[in-house]
Amino acid sequence: MRIIKKIIGFITFTLASLFIGILMLTRIPWPTELRDIYETNTIQETGAPNIVSAIYLGYRAYDTLGETIVLFIAAMGTLYLLRHAQKSLFIATDSTKETLTYKTRRTSIIKVIVSKLGPAIIIFGMYIMAFGYRSPGGGFQGGSVLASGIVILSFVFIENKSKYMAITQMLKKIEVMVFILLLVSFFLACLQALFF
């Protein structure tokens, strides 16, 4: 029975991926119409030289709102899950408890390297953010670099659980502020559209 199921699985997988392959490998000349429209109109309409940013934050800002809300909900959901994971740590049975402690075999290599490298990464991220308006992709990747710098630093500087919990509390507050900022900017944009 299991073998039959496996065979069916492989056949369906192969067929489905074949179809996806047809779709991916069909070569049709890429359309240029929209590119030309943006190329001629972006500067007059938005004033931004970076077309990607103009689309991302101007023409299709509504998509970006949706995307930010996805990010926001994912952050909220993940934090909620992690908080509840902390609770279930205490319920865990005795046999499993010992493996769950935060004692780790951590050498000082990470600490030394990260504490030197982390600030450099953060500065680099800020640089990319600041010059995002004239680099491909906008300030987006700057944000990613900055965030990865912060994550690396947090590996070193969060040693025990109490600190971790304190940080979750702080994150909760940041979460609120960011969402409010987002909506305020959205409302301002709406108002601007309404009255000006």
């Binding site: 299709r60 509504y62 998509d63 949706g66 995307e67 809300i69 996805v70 909900i73 994912a74 909220m76 959901g77 909620y80």
Partner: peptide
């Protein structure tokens, strides 16, 4: 068609949570 995708993802992620 792309906004449809974004909205589907928002509805999806809210229902997972």
């Amino acid at each position: 068609i792309f906004n449809l995708f974004v909205c589907l993802e928002v509805l999806g992620i809210t229902s997972y949570v």
